[in-house]
Amino acid sequence: YFQGQLNAMAHQIQEMFPQVPYHLVLQDLQLTRSVEITTDNILEGRI
């Protein structure tokens, strides 16, 4: 994955969860590489 793709995914998640800091979303995406998994992590309070 290149950074631009991760940034696009992070923006997509931020639209759904504007209360979660962008850098935390991006940090999780770098591990998961998945909008779905990061979204689940937010919903389950891991982020």
Rank of each mutant, 00 (worst) to 15 (best):
H23G: 06
Q30V: 11
R46F: 06
V25D: 02
I47M: 07
H11Y: 09
D40A: 14
H23N: 09
A10N: 01
P21L: 06
L26W: 10
R33M: 15
E36Y: 07
V20C: 12
N7Q: 14
Q27N: 08
E36D: 10
L6M: 08
T39G: 04
A10Y: 04
H11G: 07
T38R: 00
P21H: 07
E44R: 15
L6T: 04
Y22K: 13
R46I: 06
M9D: 05
F2W: 15
R46H: 06
M16S: 07
E36S: 12
F2S: 13
E15V: 12
Q3A: 09
E36C: 10
R33L: 14
I37Y: 06
H11R: 12
T32H: 06
E44L: 12
H23Q: 10
V25P: 00
F2H: 13
A10C: 05
V25T: 03
Q19K: 12
L29T: 01
D28K: 00
Q3C: 13
L31N: 11
I47V: 10
H11L: 13
Q12A: 12
Y1W: 10
Q12E: 09
T39M: 12
Y1Q: 14
F2Y: 10
Q27E: 13
V25M: 04
M16N: 07
T38P: 01
Q5E: 15
S34N: 07
N7L: 14
L24N: 06
D28Y: 05
Y22D: 08
S34Q: 03
M9S: 04
R33T: 06
E44A: 14
Q27P: 01
E44Q: 15
R33S: 07
R33V: 07
L31R: 11
L31W: 09
R46C: 07
L43Q: 07
Q14F: 12
A10S: 04
R33D: 06
P18H: 03
Y22R: 13
M16D: 05
N41M: 02
L31T: 11
V25R: 00
L29G: 02
I13D: 00
F17E: 00
H23S: 08
D40G: 15
I42L: 07
L6F: 07
N41A: 03
L29H: 00
N41G: 03
V35P: 06
G45A: 04
Q3H: 05
P18Y: 03
I42V: 05
A10W: 06
E36M: 09
L6Q: 03
F17L: 03
T38Q: 01
G4F: 08
T38H: 01
I42P: 00
L6W: 08
F17W: 05
F17C: 06
D28V: 05
V25Y: 04
Q14I: 12
L29K: 00
D40V: 14
T39W: 08
M9W: 14
F2D: 15
A8L: 11
Q19E: 14
T32R: 00
A8T: 09
E15L: 13
L26E: 05
M9K: 05
T32C: 05
L26F: 09
E44C: 11
F17D: 02
L24P: 06
P21W: 05
I37L: 12
Q19T: 11
H11F: 08
Q5F: 12
L29S: 00
G45Y: 03
N41K: 06
T32G: 01
Y22T: 12
V20D: 06
R33A: 08
Q27A: 13
I13E: 00
D40C: 15
F2A: 09
H11I: 12
V20N: 02
I47Y: 04
V35I: 14
N7E: 15
V25Q: 00
S34I: 05
H11M: 13
M9C: 09
H23W: 13
N41D: 01
E15A: 12
E36I: 09
G4M: 10
I47S: 02
Q3D: 15
F17N: 03
N7W: 12
Q30Y: 14
H11E: 09
Y22V: 13
A8R: 07
R46V: 06
L43M: 10
L31D: 08
I37G: 07
S34M: 03
V35L: 10
N7M: 14
Q19I: 05
L31P: 00
Q19N: 14
Y22M: 14
M9E: 04
L29Y: 01
Q12L: 11
Q19P: 02
G45S: 05
L26V: 10
I37H: 08
A10M: 07
Q27S: 11
L24W: 08
E36A: 10
M16I: 09
N41Y: 03
T38M: 03
L26G: 00
E36Q: 12
L26Y: 10
V20Q: 03
N41W: 03
V35M: 10
I47D: 01
Q5G: 09
T39V: 15
F2G: 13
I47K: 01
Y22W: 09
I42R: 01
T38G: 00
S34V: 03
I37N: 06
Q12D: 07
Q12F: 11
Q19D: 14
R33Y: 10
D40H: 14
V25L: 09
I42S: 01
P18N: 03
S34K: 03
E36F: 08
E15R: 14
V25K: 00
E44H: 14
Q12M: 13
F17S: 00
I42Q: 01
T38C: 12
H11K: 13
D40T: 15
R46Q: 04
N7D: 11
I42N: 00
L26H: 04
Q5I: 13
V25G: 01
L26M: 09
V25I: 15
P21N: 08
I37W: 08
D28S: 04
L26R: 03
F2I: 13
Q30P: 01
T38K: 00
A10K: 02
L31Y: 10
T32D: 00
Y22L: 15
N41L: 03
R46E: 02
Q5M: 14
N41R: 08
V35D: 02
M16V: 08
H23L: 09
I47P: 02
V25S: 00
M16L: 11
G45F: 04
Q3R: 07
S34P: 01
L43E: 05
Y22P: 14
N7G: 09
Q3M: 06
P21D: 14
F17A: 01
T39R: 12
R46D: 02
I42A: 02
Q3N: 10
A8H: 09
E44T: 14
V25F: 03
P18W: 05
Y1H: 13
M9Q: 06
N7S: 11
Q5R: 06
Q3I: 05
E15Q: 13
V20E: 03
Q30N: 08
G45E: 04
I42E: 00
L6C: 09
V35S: 06
Q12N: 07
I37F: 06
G4Q: 13
T38L: 00
